[in-house]
Simulated scan of single mutants.
Amino acid sequence: MSNADIVWHDAAVSQTERERKNNHSAFVLWFTGLSGSGKSTLANAIDRYFHDHGYRSYVLDGDNVRHGLNNDLGFSEEDRVENIRRISEVARLFVDAGHIVSTAFISPYADDRARARERLPDGRFIEVFVDCPLETCEARDPKGLYKKARSGEIPSFTGISAPYEAPVDPDITLQTGTRSTEENVHELVEQLEDLLRPS
């Protein structure tokens, strides 16, 4: 059997129907930024807000996904591209199911993020640039990865020996070097007001 034999099967329940029942729009919050910038912290903080306020949501975290779905991938440029391709497909399925999904991945390449956006309807992919200076991320170093990268233990580490292509025109920018998690969550909720209204 070839790909030509595979046909998309339309679901009996549409995304619109699911959104109407959930009482909110479905979309992806795509958090991108350097290691240690606060992507996972923010994704989980906004997910807690969503849960507490009755929204259907889920977080796809970079480390967690590599424990299962993407545990066959390394950190070469090719593997990073495939990592993001798979995540964008999973995120698209969550949106089709009527959920809000937050993804917390470095996703260093602009082309990969653009392709992820293309997989979703207009207005349903929100690129959130978690903007934090490299020196601040390195000072935090919550997993000790920068120290290992500087010593040569980790080759091709984003921001040190591998590139990070920061968003040129993100939908939302959050400053995590100077603002608290609570302040940034408040900013997110304000920016997402239209999507969080009843469908």
Results as ranks from 00 to 15, higher is better:
residue 1 M to H: 15
residue 7 V to W: 12
residue 8 W to M: 12
residue 9 H to I: 13
residue 10 D to L: 11
residue 11 A to L: 15
residue 14 S to C: 10
residue 17 E to Q: 15
residue 19 E to G: 10
residue 19 E to K: 09
residue 23 N to G: 13
residue 24 H to L: 05
residue 24 H to I: 04
residue 28 V to I: 11
residue 28 V to E: 07
residue 30 W to A: 04
residue 30 W to Y: 08
residue 32 T to Y: 03
residue 34 L to V: 04
residue 35 S to F: 04
residue 37 S to W: 02
residue 42 L to M: 15
residue 43 A to C: 04
residue 45 A to F: 10
residue 46 I to G: 02
residue 46 I to H: 06
residue 51 H to L: 14
residue 51 H to N: 12
residue 52 D to C: 07
residue 53 H to F: 02
residue 54 G to H: 11
residue 61 D to T: 12
residue 61 D to F: 08
residue 63 D to T: 06
residue 64 N to K: 04
residue 64 N to F: 01
residue 67 H to R: 14
residue 69 L to A: 02
residue 73 L to P: 00
residue 73 L to C: 10
residue 74 G to H: 11
residue 76 S to C: 10
residue 76 S to H: 00
residue 77 E to G: 00
residue 78 E to T: 15
residue 79 D to A: 09
residue 79 D to E: 13
residue 80 R to K: 10
residue 81 V to S: 14
residue 81 V to F: 05
residue 81 V to A: 14
residue 81 V to M: 01
residue 83 N to K: 09
residue 85 R to H: 15
residue 86 R to P: 00
residue 87 I to R: 00
residue 88 S to A: 15
residue 91 A to P: 10
residue 92 R to N: 01
residue 92 R to Q: 13
residue 93 L to A: 12
residue 93 L to K: 03
residue 94 F to T: 03
residue 94 F to L: 07
residue 97 A to H: 06
residue 98 G to Y: 08
residue 99 H to E: 05
residue 100 I to R: 02
residue 101 V to G: 05
residue 102 S to V: 03
residue 103 T to K: 02
residue 106 I to H: 02
residue 108 P to A: 07
residue 108 P to Q: 06
residue 108 P to E: 05
residue 113 R to H: 12
residue 117 R to E: 02
residue 118 E to P: 00
residue 119 R to E: 09
residue 121 P to R: 02
residue 125 F to Q: 04
residue 126 I to Q: 00
residue 128 V to S: 09
residue 130 V to L: 03
residue 130 V to T: 08
residue 130 V to E: 09
residue 133 P to K: 13
residue 133 P to I: 15
residue 137 C to P: 06
residue 137 C to T: 13
residue 138 E to N: 08
residue 139 A to N: 08
residue 141 D to Q: 14
residue 142 P to M: 04
residue 148 K to C: 09
residue 149 A to I: 09
residue 150 R to S: 07
residue 153 E to F: 00
residue 158 T to Q: 10
residue 159 G to Q: 08
residue 160 I to W: 09
residue 160 I to Q: 04
residue 160 I to P: 07
residue 166 A to C: 01
residue 167 P to M: 13
residue 172 I to L: 07
residue 175 Q to C: 01
residue 176 T to N: 09
residue 178 T to I: 14
residue 180 S to M: 12
residue 182 E to A: 15
residue 182 E to K: 13
residue 183 E to V: 00
residue 185 V to D: 11
residue 187 E to H: 15
residue 190 E to W: 00
residue 190 E to H: 11
residue 190 E to K: 14
residue 192 L to F: 11
residue 197 R to V: 08
